[in-house]
């Protein structure tokens, strides 16, 4: 995935079944953000793989004061990339055929 300066990692073991999964997000490179970033640490949250939109979560982070509005896209993209990877891994681990 593209280096957005924002890192998103799994915050729990993925059993491949749960639709809600714990993620952890933190800023690795504040220079890649457009707005001034206040170093608050890592943000832990749960994300529903089945029906949630990464951009909506990013918007909630902005509204909660973690990021400025100008960075909502980069935060959303970082979450989206990680979610795509988790889904891709899940698809790969499904046993082929019956």
């Amino acid at each position: 995935a593209e280096d957005t300066g924002v890192r998103v990692e799994l915050n729990e073991e993925d059993d491949g079944k749960k639709s809600s999964i714990a993620l952890k997000l933190w800023v690795e490179d504040p220079k890649k953000l457009k707005g001034k970033y206040k170093d608050t640490g890592a943000i832990e949250f749960t994300f529903n793989l089945a029906n949630e939109d990464p951009e909506v979560v990013a918007q909630e982070m902005v509204e909660s004061g973690f990021f400025l509005d100008c960075d909502v896209k980069v935060v959303g993209k970082s979450i989206r990339d990680r979610v795509a990877l988790i889904k891709w891994r899940r698809e790969r681990t499904v046993s082929p055929g019956n």
């Binding site: 890192r7 990692e9 952890k24 933190w26 690795e28 608050t40 640490g41 890592a42 943000i43 832990e44 949250f45 749960t46 979560v57 909630e60 982070m61 509204e63 909660s64 004061g65 973690f66």
Partner: peptide, 27 residues
Amino acid sequence: STTAQVVHSAGRRFIVSPVPESRLREQ
């Protein structure tokens, strides 16, 4: 060294914690 909890109006919980050690190694 402490964790803080922020609850968004939509009901989502954000928990602020120290940045993982792995991040420090990469810099």
